Simulated assay, not measured.
Amino acid sequence: MSQDKTSFVYVTYIRSTPDKVFEAITQPDIARRYWGHENVSDWAPGSPWQHVRADEQRDVKLVGKVIEIAPPRRLVISWANPSQADDPAAASRVSFDIAEYDGMVRLTVTHDELQAGSGMATGIQKGWPIVLSSLKSLLETGQGIDVFAQPKAA
């Protein structure tokens, strides 16, 4: 019996260039400034990538492979918890589509092949909006936001 799948799509507009947006996604030193993690890979098709916490422990939080890469317009990666790295059925997919848009960049992030109702699906629905808001803030102002912030109790 197959599991139901779901997807998440987020579109944002950034006052930047496609090259700078692509670099922010793929360069560890930039990603740590808006994500608190580094995306580490050689970015060749088929290569592994790791999402590594940018702190003293350097925990690997996510793993996957580079599925497609066409700088600075498109990057597609698989996405899984390290404990599920050997199970292709457990992986989801993230596509970053970067397009020039009237002096800006339109960034579309599509996270699909997610198991509906899973902890991963719930986590990315909360995580992507703050991460991408932080990316936008970094590229437009030079400073990301705190992606680990929590809502204040009422």
Rank of each mutant, 00 (worst) to 15 (best):
V11A: 14
V11R: 15
T12Q: 15
R15T: 12
P18W: 06
P18G: 12
V21M: 01
E23Y: 09
A24K: 11
A24I: 02
T26L: 05
D29G: 08
I30C: 00
I30N: 01
R33E: 13
R33V: 07
G36I: 00
A44H: 12
V52M: 06
A54S: 04
D55C: 10
E56C: 07
Q57K: 14
Q57H: 11
R58M: 06
D59L: 08
I67Y: 03
I69G: 01
I69R: 10
A70C: 06
R74Y: 11
R74N: 10
V76K: 00
P82M: 00
P82N: 00
A85E: 09
D86T: 03
R93Q: 10
V94P: 00
S95P: 00
D97V: 10
D97E: 08
A99V: 10
R106P: 14
T108Y: 08
H111C: 07
D112P: 13
E113S: 11
G117E: 01
M120N: 08
A121L: 05
G123H: 05
Q125P: 00
K126S: 04
P129Q: 07
I130K: 05
S134R: 04
L138A: 07
E140T: 04
E140Y: 08
G142M: 13
G142S: 14
Q143M: 12
Q143E: 14
I145Q: 10
D146M: 04
V147A: 10
